[in-house]
Write a protein that binds this DNA or RNA. Structure first.
Length: 496
RNA sequence: GGGCCGCUAGCUCAAUUGGCUAGAGCAUCCGGCUCUUAACCGGAGGGUUGCGGGUUCGAGUCCCGCGCGGCCUACCA
């Protein structure tokens, strides 16, 4: 891990540098290369070619050399491009002595362009009979083990480019991620949502309960924060009459790093005027299965060795019902506080004296219920106390018209009917401000500008947030968020 | 943040209870080979065992500190 970018003394690098120098002295590398076919094209076009065939079809291919086998007068190379691999067949009779000698000097990892006619070997391997080739750029670095590849998790994360070269799984996950994002975008666009961009750099980080990253604007001499949500800006746009908006955006939270948390992650948030949380349920039940279909071809997926069925309708349950079920005893917001605290204590939860019934139920849910939920479940009616931006339920104003999509013990989406009463919103903010003053760095700050926007009138609105990274994890069967983020946050490599 | 574990050649991995010159495969270099699929065969080179200190006749192995990573745990999506 401690090698630096200049290793002239390393014999493995020195040999490659020698070749590199030779190429530079004899005219250097080409600035471009005309490729006629991708590897995948060739396999598709010539899938019927019998073993030992020769054709008149001349093609040019380009890619990175992954394998090289030499038989003296005959050589085989495996060239990998963005679509797959194609074999290069190099014999002296075709390429000539000079060319063949030059080819015997190429190293694993070099970028090559090669042209020749299509053929199949006696064993039937589709190949390009190389009559001309060029080194497009040498790789000066030793290549990972051609069979075992790169296993070290740290190296794979730090040098994702090498991981992508040698590990097909890494390429598949990266591709699946783009499919997820593209399909999410398509699903919302086809439903009439407009994609917008809201600020990342803010005077105050609002819209969620989390610690922000702090920075400073020098010209304005002003402390600023990276956003922790897009919520309040998107709702301002609904106030402005953009009735259906969404944003797929990078969010930054200055909190712990573990298998499901990276300091920067991607969230989709969508808001729809004249809709409520039940409309958001329908939206989730439509969109998530469509994304699953786009990635896996179906709505039943296997995650970490267990089956998951994302086919709608999804199971629905209220938070208090789930907690009651877990306790084997009915509880709700009217339950005795001491009794609830007793249940919580039995579950190993460290109860604080000041906690209300709402907080106790919510803590029991988070610590003892949510981790046990496997099948996709829409958990509804969280207490208002833990939902500072959600609208109250008309039947019980202590509960929010809200739901979370929980799958395999984790939260994948969070949605509610948006609180649009400016006075109620002010009171919620002020309750948060008390906690903030008491040292809770994650409590929501009062956002006066947002309150002003609410006073202009937010129509009844449904809002939805989807954790994109986790969705990718679910659909690619990855247990760690670092596997679905190309360049996860890491400490700097230690220097010698 | 706390606890436990790991770090050996470019890569993937060995090394018995603290004991011989730290080994193997791939990669590299040299030689052989015109149909391989991780080609094969013969030979060679390659190590401050993460970094720093300590114990010991002797440390990859034991102890202490530091760095990076992993797992669990706590907060969060």
């Amino acid at each position: 891990m401690t090698e630096t970018s200049d290793q002239g003394k390393d014999p493995l690098v020195a040999g490659r540098r020698e070749q590199h120098q030779k190429i530079l002295e004899s005219g250097g590398y080409p600035h471009r290369y005309d490729r006629t076919h991708l590897a995948d094209d060739l396999h598709r076009l010539f899938s019927d070619l019998a073993p030992g065939s020769e054709t008149d079809t001349r093609v040019s291919v380009a890619g990175r050399l992954m394998l090289h086998r030499s038989f003296g007068k005959l050589q085989f190379g495996t060239l990998q491009d963005v679509t797959g691999t194609i074999q290069l067949f190099v014999d002296r009779a075709t390429l000539g002595d000079d060319g063949a000698n030059r080819f015997s000097e190429v190293d694993l990892g070099d970028w090559l362009g090669a042209s020749g006619v299509i053929m199949t070997t006696r064993k039937g391997e589709l190949s390009v009979r190389v009559d001309d080739f060029v080194v497009l750029q040498k790789s000066l670095r030793p290549f990972p083990d051609k069979w075992h590849g790169l296993h070290d998790i740290e190296l794979r994360s730090r040098r994702r480019y090498v991981d992508l070269m040698v590990n097909e799984e890494a390429r598949n996950v990266a591709r699946a991620r783009t499919v997820v994002v593209a399909e999410l975008r398509r699903q919302f666009e086809t439903r009439g949502f407009i994609e917008v961009e809201t600020p990342v750099l803010l005077r105050e980080a609002t819209g969620a309960m989390a610690r922000p990253f702090a920075t400073h604007h020098h010209a304005l001499d002003m402390d600023m924060y990276l956003r922790i949500a897009t919520e309040l800006f998107l709702k301002r746009l609904v106030v402005g009459g953009m009735e259906k908006v969404f944003e797929i955006g990078r969010i930054f939270r200055n909190e712990g790093v573990d298998s499901t948390h990276n300091p920067e992650f991607t969230m989709l948030e969508a808001y729809e005027a004249f809709a409520d949380y039940t409309d958001m349920m329908t939206l989730v039940e439509e969109v998530i299965p469509e994304v699953a279909r786009a990635v896996t071809g179906g709505t039943k997926v296997s995650y970490q060795g267990r089956e998951l069925d994302l086919t709608p309708p999804l199971r629905r349950a209220t938070m208090t019902d789930l907690v009651s079920e877990r306790l084997g005893h009915p509880v709700d917001l009217d339950s005795d506080k001491g009794e609830l605290a007793g249940w919580a204590g039995e579950l190993g939860i460290e109860v604080e004296e000041v906690w209300s019934q709402a907080r106790l139920i919510s803590e029991i849910y988070e610590q003892a219920v949510e981790p046990e939920i496997w099948a996709p479940t829409l958990v509804t009616h969280q207490p208002v106390e833990v939902s500072p931006l959600a609208r109250r339920n008309p039947d019980d104003p202590r509960l929010a018209d809200r739901f979370e999509l929980v799958v395999a013990g984790s939260e994948y989406a969070n949605a509610f009917s948006e609180l649009n009463d400016p006075d109620d919103q002010r009171e919620r903010f002020e309750a948060q401000a008390v906690a903030r003053a008491a040292g809770d760095l994650e409590a929501h700050p009062v956002d006066e500008d947002y309150l002003l926007a609410l006073e202009y009138g937010l129509p009844p609105t449904g809002g939805l947030g989807i954790g994109v990274d986790r969705l990718v994890m679910l659909l690619t069967d990855q247990a760690h968020i670092r596997e679905v983020i190309l360049f996860p946050t890491l400490r700097p490599e230690s220097q010698p």
